[in-house]
Simulated scan of single mutants.
Amino acid sequence: MAAYIRQRPPRWFWLTGLAATLWGLLGVFAFLLYAAYGAILFPAPADPFSDALPTWFGIVYACTAGSALLGGIALMTRSALARLLFLASLAFLLVQSAYLLLGTPVVPQFGWSTLLVPLLLIAVAGGEIWFADYARRHGWIC
Score class of each variant (00 low, 15 high):
residue 97 S to A: 13
residue 72 G to H: 14
residue 96 Q to L: 05
residue 86 F to M: 03
residue 31 F to L: 15
residue 121 L to F: 04
residue 90 L to H: 11
residue 114 T to F: 09
residue 111 G to T: 03
residue 32 L to S: 09
residue 43 P to A: 01
residue 117 V to M: 14
residue 128 E to Y: 11
residue 8 R to H: 02
residue 115 L to Y: 15
residue 17 G to P: 04
residue 125 A to E: 02
residue 20 A to L: 11
residue 12 W to S: 14
residue 39 A to F: 01
residue 21 T to M: 11
residue 27 G to D: 01
residue 75 L to N: 00
residue 52 A to V: 04
residue 64 T to C: 08
residue 57 F to R: 13
residue 19 A to T: 08
residue 80 A to N: 12
residue 112 W to S: 13
residue 74 A to T: 02
residue 131 F to P: 08
residue 37 Y to I: 02
residue 140 W to T: 04
residue 26 L to K: 03
residue 50 S to I: 08
residue 47 D to W: 14
residue 57 F to C: 00
residue 77 T to D: 04
residue 116 L to D: 05
residue 107 V to M: 02
residue 110 F to M: 10
residue 127 G to V: 12
residue 42 F to W: 14
residue 127 G to N: 06
residue 56 W to K: 02
residue 90 L to N: 07
residue 2 A to R: 13
residue 21 T to I: 08
residue 108 P to F: 12
residue 11 R to H: 05
residue 120 L to G: 11
residue 101 L to I: 02
residue 15 L to H: 09
residue 92 F to T: 07
residue 37 Y to W: 14
residue 62 A to S: 11
residue 136 R to N: 08
residue 41 L to E: 10
residue 84 L to H: 09
residue 49 F to P: 07
residue 59 I to L: 09
residue 5 I to Y: 03
residue 20 A to S: 10
residue 1 M to Y: 05
residue 116 L to E: 08
residue 66 G to I: 12
residue 15 L to C: 11
residue 38 G to I: 10
residue 5 I to R: 07
residue 95 V to G: 05
residue 7 Q to V: 01
residue 115 L to Q: 09
residue 12 W to I: 13
residue 132 A to Y: 09
residue 89 S to D: 08
residue 50 S to E: 01
residue 41 L to M: 15
residue 20 A to R: 06
residue 82 A to K: 10
residue 118 P to F: 06
residue 68 A to F: 07
